[in-house]
């Protein structure tokens, strides 16, 4: 009985705080992306001719965790199969945050663009009972454009 109560309390906390967190995070991301829109990100290697000499590796990473509600929702979804929307939004948040952090680093260096940007993912915590999270890493080369 006690276990069941704990389960529902955790589920409720997960649902309320998890979705609140997510909404706030998306709001912050939109603002940050707007601010940093002058730093263009490309995943191509071919460089234009008007670049200044040199370049620097920049990266941004973030570890995102799933909330309790998402875990349970995913568990039920896995029985029937189909889209795991809760996990999709988690990955999206992580990726966008990593790119934003990479852009911030480039901005601090006074760069104008990032070339050969790569996105990488690695899962953290193997056992499903323990910490379920994912690290998202974005990296690329920050360059300056000759004015």
């Amino acid at each position: 009985m006690g276990g069941l109560i704990t389960f529902f309390v955790l589920l409720l906390i997960g649902l309320i705080f998890g979705s609140m967190n997510e909404r706030n995070h998306f709001k912050r991301l939109r603002i940050a992306e707007e601010e940093l829109s002058h730093i263009k990100v490309f995943n191509i290697k071919t460089l234009p001719d008007n670049l200044e000499t040199g370049g620097a590796l920049v990266s941004g990473n973030v570890v995102v965790a799933v909330d309790y509600f998402k875990v349970i929702a995913a568990f039920f979804k896995m029985v029937f199969g189909g889209q795991l929307r809760s996990f999709e939004s988690l990955m999206e948040r992580g990726r966008r945050e990593a790119v934003v952090r990479m852009q911030r680093e480039a901005e601090a260096l006074g760069a104008d663009a990032i070339y050969n940007a790569r996105l990488e993912f690695s899962a953290i915590g193997q056992q499903p009972q323990k910490i379920g999270g994912a690290e998202l890493l974005a990296y690329g080369t920050a360059v300056k454009i000759k004015s």
Binding site: L10, N21, N61, V63, V64, A65, D67, E97, I131, G133
Partner: peptide, 18 residues
Amino acid sequence: AGLKNIVGGGLRGYTELL
């Protein structure tokens, strides 16, 4: 991190470590 797993969101400790 285990506590954070209830509410979800960024794990700052792990991010710094990595």
